[in-house]
Simulated assay, not measured.
Amino acid sequence: MISPKQLLAGLLLSALISSAALGEPGQAKLAIIIDDLGYNLRAGLRTIALPGAYTLALLPSTPHTLALAQAGAAEGKELMLHAPMANTAGLALGPGALTESMSRAEFTASLRHSLEQLPGIKGVNNHMGSALTPLPRPMGWVMTEAAKRDLYFVDSRTTASSRAYEVASAYGLASAQRDVFLDHERDRAHIATQLKRAIAIAQHKGQAIAIGHPYPETLDVLEQAEPLLRAAKVSLVPASQLVRKQTPGAQACLLPPVMLRRPLTANAPVFASKKWWVLRYLMPSGYERKTPVEKHDINTRS
């Protein structure tokens, strides 16, 4: 008969063997998206020359959009459309602008024109957008066009109230959110600190997405980033490797436990969403109320 000590020893040995067979876990992954490419050819070419799998986000209809797209593709860089979206500061958007005042036909025509300029793109992210990304309806129009082309969406999160990632998930797009802005301050020391912060997040979570711009200060830092990434055991990857599709209803059950249900009154709002009970029963009253995200214009409020 095997004694308890022998059994325990056998289990520990099995665990050690299994651990050795599995080896070290995979490296953490970091995607770095460089936005605002298209107006400055020299800065764009310097960005393309960065060593590693940087992702290039190109503005539509700029003087150098097509040339940089071709050069980036030739160097094996992943390309995205950097779609200009309305902002609360009233800053000029340039060609390809998407605003909340457009009709759906105008909005869709502008977006399609931008997308058709860049047939080699893999995804879309927002340029500015603090006024547009909180609005589910126009963001749904964006996701409709992106889904037709099997593109992913990265929410740049230029505002804390953005719902772009939520809408992208509801439409079944592979999507993700920005974790770190590298160069909100155009200072080399600050950018280096932000890069280290992005690396730390990747090490903690297994992955992270950072966004920067083709500023000389940013490029100076990124040109020296390879040894830092290697020492941290973090792999630089295209953004497409870090986006995920959400399983419909994965974050909420269709019927909440009894202890979470409240009696419904005659005038209680009914949310036509799989997440309705999360919003109705789990959100504390002090939180901002949200319009449920729907794909079929069920909700009239933006």
Score class of each variant (00 low, 15 high):
residue 1 M to Q: 12
residue 141 W to L: 07
residue 17 I to K: 02
residue 223 E to Q: 15
residue 36 D to F: 01
residue 256 P to T: 12
residue 104 R to K: 14
residue 233 K to W: 00
residue 74 A to S: 12
residue 86 A to Q: 15
residue 302 S to V: 10
residue 122 K to M: 04
residue 244 R to P: 07
residue 130 S to T: 15
residue 56 L to T: 08
residue 226 E to F: 01
residue 42 R to T: 15
residue 222 L to N: 05
residue 259 M to K: 12
residue 280 R to L: 06
residue 70 Q to V: 10
residue 35 D to C: 08
residue 83 A to Q: 14
residue 128 M to Y: 06
residue 50 L to V: 11
residue 118 L to D: 06
residue 81 L to P: 05
residue 291 T to G: 02
residue 265 T to D: 15
residue 153 F to Q: 03
residue 124 V to W: 03
residue 16 L to N: 05
residue 150 D to S: 13
residue 157 R to G: 09
residue 157 R to F: 09
residue 222 L to W: 05
residue 136 P to H: 03
residue 83 A to I: 09
residue 248 P to I: 11
residue 128 M to C: 05
residue 282 L to A: 14
residue 228 L to T: 15
residue 195 L to V: 08
residue 173 L to F: 09
residue 58 L to H: 08
residue 169 S to A: 13
residue 120 G to Q: 14
residue 9 A to L: 10
residue 75 E to D: 10
residue 90 G to Y: 02
residue 68 L to M: 09
residue 255 L to R: 07
residue 255 L to V: 04
residue 198 A to D: 04
residue 73 A to C: 04
residue 237 V to K: 04
residue 142 V to I: 13
residue 90 G to T: 01
residue 244 R to T: 15
residue 288 E to S: 08
residue 275 K to H: 13
residue 97 A to P: 11
residue 30 L to W: 01
residue 71 A to T: 06
residue 109 A to N: 09
residue 253 C to R: 13
residue 228 L to W: 10
residue 210 A to F: 05
residue 150 D to C: 02
residue 31 A to G: 09
residue 134 P to T: 04
residue 205 K to F: 00
residue 297 D to N: 14
residue 106 E to H: 06
residue 56 L to W: 07
